[in-house]
Nucleic acid binder design. Structure first.
Length: 305
DNA sequence: CCAGGTCAAGGGAGT
DNA sequence: ACTCCCTTGACCTGG
């Protein structure tokens, strides 16, 4: 079981290492692509540093921030003035991941909705997902869900079946790379998509399901946790270890005043496992790499750094 | 120089 | 129809 953390390394952030540099619209409008390129190249350089830290610290899976290229839906990243350097570093990052057997992934945000009734939203989503997949391509990573681009289905619009059919139709328009890398995740809200819903999309598209334990607790649908987990795990192709998300409830363990869906800083229980099915885990905890270390100390009896 | 108001994008829930 | 929330950090301005 590989275990990883998401997007931000707080240890390095304290030293000014960040992969999140961005800008508001007004700044993008005035400074344009040259400035976007400057931010992107700094982000990519720092991502390499984070990757070195990950290797040194035995991190087995890492989610890359979707803010790596600011405003990337507005341009082709190959046209940035710093593209030659960026391209080289992206390739180095991929080599580091491959050499160390580390899984990389993206989790594009809430605005990526393939089932939207609005055409413009679909166009934006396709562009954004293709771009994410392209970055992984430029890293030289194998074109499958080992290095995935994970999203939610999106809205339900009062008719999940119709929405899923739209999702399936629009999925066909993605780039070959995006199609091969895409995964779908169960939602935490009662009227949204549980594993049993996603299973329909999987059957029609082959897209594997990322099982989020915490989301299942918030919105289990009709399946028990073990049944839902198993149903998700078997959607993954032979030879690719399924990925899952695991986190603890902030409300239950750290702050009773917040909503149940909020993530805790750390993990307060051990990741469940099955007798027969293997899977990897992306931890979603606000303390990031510190939460991963603590998890290993608390539950894996490993001595960490 | 820094604190805090504000920020591209969608959708759902509550009023 | 409208506001707030999700979830979150970082940008950027005004004091």
């Amino acid at each position: 079981m590989k275990i990883g953390y998401a997007c931000i390394n707080n240890t390095l952030k304290a030293e000014g290492i960040t992969t999140n540099r961005g800008m508001i619209k007004k700044t993008f409008m005035s400074k344009g692509l040259p400035y976007a390129s400057e931010l992107a190249v700094q982000n990519v350089r720092d991502l390499y540093t984070v990757m070195e830290w990950n290797v040194e610290n035995g991190v087995e899976a890492f989610r890359i921030s979707s803010c790596l290229f600011p405003w990337m839906s507005e341009y082709e990243i190959t046209t940035l003035k710093d593209w030659p350097e960026i391209n080289e570093i992206l390739n180095d990052i991929g080599q580091l991941a491959i050499a160390n057997n580390m899984r990389l992934s993206f989790h594009p945000g809430q605005f990526n909705i393939l089932c939207s009734p609005k055409q413009q939203v679909i166009e934006n989503t396709i562009r954004e997902l293709d771009q994410h997949a392209f970055i992984l391509d430029m890293m030289g990573l194998p074109c499958n869900q080992t290095h995935k681009v994970n999203i939610h289905i999106g809205g339900a619009y009062g008719d999940k079946d119709a929405a899923m059919d739209r999702w399936i139709e629009n999925f066909k328009r993605l780039s070959d790379s995006a199609k091969k890398r895409l995964t779908i995740e169960n939602d935490d809200k009662p009227n949204m998509y549980a594993v049993e819903d996603l299973a329909y999309v999987h059957i029609r598209t082959g897209v594997p399901i990322v099982f989020d334990f915490h989301h299942h607790d918030c919105h289990p649908g009709q399946l028990s946790k073990e049944d839902a987990l198993r149903k998700a795990l078997v959607t993954w192709p032979d030879g690719i270890t399924p990925m899952t998300h695991f986190s603890s409830s902030r409300k239950l363990h750290e702050d009773a005043s917040v909503k149940n869906v909020a993530h805790a800083d750390y993990l307060y229980s051990q990741i469940p496992h099955t007798e027969d099915l293997e899977f990897d885990v992306m931890l979603e905890a606000k303390a990031k790499e510190a939460a991963l270390d603590k998890y290993k100390k608390d539950y894996l009896n490993e001595v960490v750094i």
